[in-house]
Amino acid sequence: MTLAAASHGFLSPTGVEIAFLLVGLVTLGAAVVTVTTKQLVHAALWLVVALGGIAVEYLLLTAEFIAWVQVLIYVGSVVVLLLFGLMLTKAPIGRSENADSGNRWAALIVAVASAAALVWVVTDAFRTTWIDLDGAVQGSTEASGRSLFQYWVLPFEALSVLLLAALVGAIVLSRKNDDRERSDGSERPGSGKQSGPREQSGSREQPGSRERPGDRARLREDQG
């Protein structure tokens, strides 16, 4: 790599570098807006910009398969999931003044300090390192698929099991608690004992105490 260092000028960026830099700036700006905006839905939308920017960066780094996976999964599903989450938790539309918690300044200090330290370390370590993007494409679909199904089959399959488990877990957690009427709920103690405020029909055997916090919370919400 020292040879490469000699052949590249630091102050003579290539076109790819300029593009990377510009997209990186957009991405970073979108990320910053994501974590600072007062409008919750806007934060999700800005997250789309940030994630999309990262996908573009993947493309610039010649990892095209990863880029499309990024677009599909993150922009396509994760953000949609997040938006659904915001809706289901009745996140307020519009500006909400208390979107940030009280320890915002401590968080800022920690984040800035970490950023400074890491940037310093990273630049110090890699200031004479260049990526050679001119060779064969590193992350074409063919290359990725080849390595994935040649060398990474077993982890890949294990990952599918993980996803299945996550799927089941998410369903179990978020399912409404109707099964308490049909069974005593003992086979799923976790979900069986949680009863939400929105299931008045299913809480005959549990007197009001279980619903009250939720009810009151809703009342408070209505008043607020």
């Binding site: 590249h8 990273v122 200031r127 390192t129």
Partner: peptide, 17 residues
């Protein structure tokens, strides 16, 4: 491409997160 670009971008994104 200079390795510092993606690395620094990653660092900054991480700290923003």
């Amino acid at each position: 491409m200079h390795l510092a670009y993606p690395a620094v971008l990653a660092v900054l994104l991480f700290c923003v997160g």
